[in-house]
Design a binder for these strands. Structure first.
Lengths: 130, 130
DNA sequence: CTTGCTGCAAAGGTTTTGCATTGTT
DNA sequence: AACAATGCAAAACCTTTGCAGCAAG
């Protein structure tokens, strides 16, 4: 197993992206992250935003919520579930009461090794139902 | 509310697509559905496959599992969860023990009206871990 | 005959990537 | 000085869509 041995470097791009994600609870898409971080770092590129988000995700420091349209990112990796509005695509936090009962955390699967799980609820958000 | 009043028509495309999905437990992507159905209906187009899959999904007769890479489709809409291999992208069925406890089914959200929910487990499938 | 559905092909949107350059360590 | 990370732009990918012709009811 050739685990990557390369040393990571700290850059302004990484720290602004992570800082922005930590500061919001809106589960922004990569495009939103790009637009927001660009306000502070006008030269940042979309490619960098995608690369950095994927790296943080691989390290488990942020999580992605995959929707029909695109991926949304969340720097909160504590136990909680998400509500995805099928009309506007927005993502909201909801309490994951199911983690309390421990069933999901201790789940074993015959098909492979479970690393983590996600619970998504779908419907129409308050704003979309007028 | 202008609910659609148009009469749906039955076509070979729809019935082959639905029949194929019902016959497999492999959670194929739209591309796979296209390739498989094309064996029986050589003139079918990708656009039709995507349209038909989306229509079945909207009617709730099939469900989509959204992954990082693409959507996978499942004609089994009974209570069960999925395991998504983060290496090869394949989707497998797993038992959703959590539905038994009723917590998720009766979940209410302040952020909107819940219509349904999905539980996804992530990790490496047996085949990818050699 | 009406009009929903399809095939085709083009377009749309998101995400990835190659490469020269920049900037951390 | 090494080489990881970035910016830029093109490309890759998945999915949607406009439109003319086809076909189910």
């Amino acid at each position: 197993m050739a685990t990557s041995l390369k040393k990571e470097r700290m850059t302004a791009q990484k720290s602004f992206i992570f800082g922005y994600l930590k500061s919001v609870k809106s589960h922004p898409s990569a495009e939103i992250v790009y637009k927001e971080v660009k306000k502070k770092l006008p030269n940042i590129s979309q490619g960098t935003v995608y690369r950095v988000l994927n790296n943080f995700k691989e390290k488990g420091e942020i999580q992605a919520i995959d929707t029909k349209d695109n991926a949304h990112f969340d720097a909160d990796i504590s136990d909680h579930a998400h509500f995805i509005c099928e009309e506007c695509g927005k993502v909201f936090d909801v309490i994951d009461e199911c983690s309390k009962c421990g069933i999901l955390k201790n789940k074993k699967a015959k098909v492979g090794k479970i690393k983590h799980y996600k619970i998504n609820f779908y419907g129409s958000c308050k704003n979309c139902r007028k």
